[in-house]
Design a protein around this nucleic acid. Structure first.
Lengths: 120, 120
DNA sequence: CGGCATCCTTCTGGATACTG
DNA sequence: CAGTATCCAGAAGGATGCCG
């Protein structure tokens, strides 16, 4: 045993498992069948209505699931829900827009992973 | 619509959704209740036996679940399973050791996320 | 010791119908 | 249009027991 292998930490009194909890926080934000799809669409369109999002997501989401996804993303400050006149429009917050780099990094890591696990 | 918002891609003929699939690959590797715990323990100990891993994981994993986790990590080239004499020892592959930086990055992102979503 | 077999509970997501 | 309500199926994880 050599202590927590996660350097890059500033506060030293927290233990490794708490750090894992922090890491899982951000995984939860992106995890799920449709979260990244929604974020990507909102990166493309800036503002989008519920029905449009539902129609444009490849594969097809039920209204119930899309609703819960949007609610979840809103709670995590990724999207903003706004009543524009009579309709409802969703858009990314500034923080939400910062997810583009995060997802890009994941794509990079994913490509490396496919290379490592060839043929899988 | 302005095209796929994920730059940092080299091959241009694949579309955005395939890129998301690639990103999900790496998420799957780390996602799950115990995968990162196992990786962290193996970063600390280099080699570890099944029972030891099970005993040291905080919270407690059932043998069935730990078994499936290790099998999954092995399929993804993260851990190596070796019969050392009569006992079984697990250790990280070189690729598996590269997960330390990935997890560290997630911790960084998680800290930023907590800062963004204060009090949650 | 290192699992696998079985059974059970919980969580995600899907299908459909309905409402303000 | 933008959801909510209900019911349902499948996967993940847990508890316990058994086996080579």
């Amino acid at each position: 045993m050599k202590g927590c292998p996660l350097q890059a930490m500033l506060s030293s009194d927290k233990d490794c498992n708490q750090k894992l909890g922090v890491a899982k926080d951000i995984l939860d934000v992106l995890n799920g069948k449709w979260k990244m799809e929604v974020i990507l669409l909102l990166l493309q369109y800036d503002k989008r209505r519920f029905k449009d999002l539902q129609a444009e997501i490849p594969g097809g989401v039920s209204a119930k699931v899309l609703s819960s996804v949007l609610k979840d993303l809103e709670e995590h400050h990724i999207v903003k829900r706004g009543l524009d006149d009579v309709t409802v429009e969703y858009e990314l917050t500034e923080y939400g827009r910062s997810m583009r780099e995060v997802i890009s990094n994941l794509v990079e890591l994913g490509l490396a992973h496919r290379k490592e696990v060839i043929g899988k």
